[in-house]
Design a protein around this nucleic acid. Sequence first.
DNA 1: TTTCTAAGTTAGATTTGTCTAAATTTTATT
DNA 2: AATAAAATTTAGACAAATCTAACTTAGAAA
Lengths: 219, 219
Amino acid sequence: MNLSVAEENYIKSIYKLEETTDGVTTTGLAYELDTKPASVTDMAKKLKEKKLIDYEKYQGISLTAEGKKAALHIIRRHRLWECFLVEKLDFSWEEVHELAEELEHVRSEKLTNRLSEFLGNPVIDPHGDPIPDAQGKMGKQRTQVSLDQARTKRLEVTAVSDKSTALLEFLTAKGIRLGTQLEIIERYEFDNSIEIKIRNQPAFTISEQVSKNIMVRPV
Amino acid sequence: MNLSVAEENYIKSIYKLEETTDGVTTTGLAYELDTKPASVTDMAKKLKEKKLIDYEKYQGISLTAEGKKAALHIIRRHRLWECFLVEKLDFSWEEVHELAEELEHVRSEKLTNRLSEFLGNPVIDPHGDPIPDAQGKMGKQRTQVSLDQARTKRLEVTAVSDKSTALLEFLTAKGIRLGTQLEIIERYEFDNSIEIKIRNQPAFTISEQVSKNIMVRPV
DNA sequence: TTTCTAAGTTAGATTTGTCTAAATTTTATT
DNA sequence: AATAAAATTTAGACAAATCTAACTTAGAAA
Ligand SMILES: [Mn+2]
Ligand SMILES: [Mn+2]
Ligand SMILES: [Mn+2]
Ligand SMILES: [Mn+2]
C-alpha cells in the first residue's frame, strides 16, 4: 500500500482522534488537519477505496485494521525522529514536532529500524508518548491521568498531550519537563486553575487549559 | 524562496548537468529526471518565473546565481544525510542515495547545521563528492580524473560519478571503494576495457563504462 | 411531528505536476 | 538551398489535493 504524504497525515490524525475523542467526525478531522470539511469528505472517499478506513456518508470515520497498522508505522517513525533530534542533535522538545512531521514520511523499514537501533530502541518519545515497535505494538502506557484530574498531591510528569510550541515553551519556562516532580498546593474552583510547587521553588498557578495537557502519575 | 520537492529536484539536476555536460538541454534534463521533455518545458517556465534559471525557448537552461545557491543547499543536505546513513546507521554506499533523495527535501537550516556538526562537519560524502558548507561553498576537489583517462599506473580511488545501485554494488563486489589503491596492468584498445590489480589479489578487467565512472588520483 | 440548525456532502473551480499528440523550430544532411 | 531529422514547445488532458458556495441530511428544539 503506497500512501501519499497527505494520506499519511490523514491516517495519523484519524488515529489520534480515535484515541482521544469519541467518534471521528468530518469537522473534527478538518479542524485537526487545519483544512476544510469538504476536503475531508473528498479524502475519506479515497481512503475508503484503499480500505484504510470504514466510512459511510454522514456516519463518521474509523480506521480498518489495515489503517490502524499504517498509522502505527507512521507514528513510530515520527517519534523515533523526535528522539533522534532531541538526543543526538540536541534540539529541545518544542522544536522537534514540526520537523518530525516531515521526516516521518520517508518510508523505509530499514531506515526506521536502523534509526531505532541507533537510538537504543527507545520506548517513549520526548513528549512522553510510547513508540510502537517494528510490528506496530506499543508498550502499555504506565497509568497516567491529566493533572487536572489527579487525586493525589505528589505527582511526576509523564507526558504532555498538546505538542504545540506555545505550550511546550511555556512548560519549559516554568521548569516543567518529563520526570519533573511536583506538588499540588491548591485548586481554585472558580476557574479550575491549580497552584503547584516544584521542589523548593516558589509555588505558581497554572490554568485548567495547561493542567489538562500535563499527564502525571502519583509518586 | 519556497521550493516544492519537484522544483528542488529540477534545480539539483540542472546543477549536475551544468557541471558534467556542456549545455543543459530539455531532452537531457528530461532523461536525467526520468520524465518527458514536455514536462521539462513546463517546469522551465516556472523556474524562470521564480528567477532560479535563465531560459529562453529553444535556447537551453542555466541556473542563475540564486538558482546555484539553492542547488548547493540541496546538495549539502543530500550529502550530509548520506554521511549520516553510512556512518551512524551503518548503511552501505549503494543504499544511501535513494534515501537521501527524500531526506534532502526537509528544509531546516538548523537541522542541516546540527546534523553537520553531529557528523563532525564532513567535507566529502560516501561517494567521494564534496559537501558544500552552510554558505554553499565547496572545498576544492583534489585533482582527479576518471580511470579511463588516467596517465599513471598506480592510482587511488577518490570518487564515483554514477551513484546507481548497480554500479556501486559491482564495485563493492570487486573490492573497489573510496581510498582503494589499484594498478593498471593493461589497456585493451578494442573496447577500451582496462585490466587492473588491487594489492595482491588476482587482476581483473573492467569495461570502459565502469572505468569512466571511477575517479582516481595518482599515488 | 414539524421545523430549524449544524454538520456533512456535492458541484465546480484552482494549483501543481505530469502526460500524449500535434505543431514548430533548430540542426544536420544531402 | 532544400529537405529530412531531431529537439523543443504548445495544446489539451488528467490526477491529486485543495478550496468556496450551494445543497442535503441528521438530529435537536419547539
Ligand atoms: Mn506529517
Ligand atoms: Mn512526540
Ligand atoms: Mn530528491
Ligand atoms: Mn553521494
